[in-house]
Amino acid sequence: MSEHLLLAPLLESYFRRRLTKQRNATPATVASYRDALRMLILFAAARLRKRPAALVLEDLDRDLVLAFLDELEEKRNNTVATRNARLAAIRSFFHHVAAADPASFGVAQRVLTIPTKRAHIEVTHHLTDAEVDTVIAAPDQRTPRGRRDRAFLLFLARTGARVSEAIGVNADDLQLGRPHSQVLLHGKGRRDRVIPVPQDLARALAALLRERGITNHEPRPIFIGAHNERLTRFGATHIVRRAAAKAVATRPDLAEKPISPHIFRHSLAMKLLQSGVDLLTIQAWLGHAQVATTHRYAAADVEMMRNGLEKAGIKGDYGTRFRPTDAVLQLLNSI
């Protein structure tokens, strides 16, 4: 067997050259691909009863990769989306293998033919304006923690930022002194975008910066945790869950909704859509790489119309291209 089929040199060249230097991958991408390949190697070592360092490339054949993907879903209870993300990392590595070592092209080609799995796309959950306001108002404004929590919830709700974008914002990313305030969000895949900041959020952020003694030009995190370090993803989730739990006392129906930091992003998207904003604008606002990702909000809006008509006693198979002209007229006439 050729020494070029050894796994270790190919892995090293993949991470040191292809991902870092040639693809200029972000640290988050490198970490995600590293974790996926680490899991695959540990699975292969256990299945073949070899030490990880003793594995060769031919051990990672198509059948083993398929068995690994099955285990992700069946034993680890990973979603189809997570399974596909792991497969994307594996395919990226084998693209490198095919280019770096012609002798291993056959092994790589068989793995690269593994298709991604189609996932069922559920209706997007979101909150109404009143529900969003209730959650934002839940933190106790008499305490520093409560004021920080409210500002963070308001930031998620008004900007539609991902959690990673919200906790990554620094004071120098803000422009609050302009007639129209704005914030620079550092999105996935190094796709930065500028988002307008409404007046209520601008006031909350300005008050938070004053309380912490930070000026707009300092590269310091806006949202910090209990130990004055940048807020983590876990901390952000805890803030949302704590506020949601308190908001249930005011609106008991919130207990039935899966409230997470991401639901504010969905809620803003639905609000923009229902206000007549086109999908391309929403795509740019949210930082989606493809408009197909944004299209699910339009599908969710159609589902809302269908549910409303069925509750009113107007039933039918409307499909995804639902045009409720006659049904809506019936509903309006019945009111």
Results as ranks from 00 to 15, higher is better:
K117H: 11
V111A: 09
F155I: 03
Q141F: 03
R118I: 03
H125T: 04
A103L: 14
V111R: 08
A138C: 09
A108H: 09
P102T: 02
L153V: 07
F152A: 02
V132S: 01
T124Y: 06
V132W: 01
L127R: 01
L153C: 07
P144Q: 13
A103C: 05
Q109R: 14
L112C: 10
Q141P: 12
F105E: 15
A99I: 01
R148G: 00
P139C: 07
P144Y: 10
D101T: 11
R148I: 03
A151C: 12
T134L: 14
R147W: 07
T124Q: 15
T134E: 14
T128M: 07
I121S: 06
E122D: 09
L156K: 07
V132F: 02
P102M: 11
F105K: 13
D133I: 00
R145G: 14
A100H: 13
H120Q: 14
D140N: 13
A103G: 06
A138Y: 10
G106W: 14
A151D: 13
D149R: 15
G106Q: 15
T116C: 08
D140F: 04
P139V: 03
R147M: 11
I121F: 04
R110Y: 04
V132D: 00
T124C: 03
E131H: 08
A103I: 04
A130G: 01
R145P: 02
T134S: 08
D129A: 10
T134N: 02
P139G: 00
D133L: 14
V107E: 14
R148W: 04
P115E: 15
A130P: 05
L156I: 09
R110D: 15
A108S: 12
R147A: 04
R142L: 03
T143Y: 10
R150Y: 03
A138N: 11
F155M: 12
T134P: 04
L156E: 05
A100P: 04
R148C: 02
D140P: 09
P139K: 04
V135Q: 04
E122P: 00
Q109W: 06
I121D: 03
R148H: 07
I114P: 11
A103Y: 12
V132H: 01
P144W: 10
A137N: 11
P139D: 12
A99K: 08
G106L: 15
F155P: 01
Q109L: 13
Q141R: 08
A103F: 13
F105T: 08
L112S: 07
A138R: 09
H95R: 10
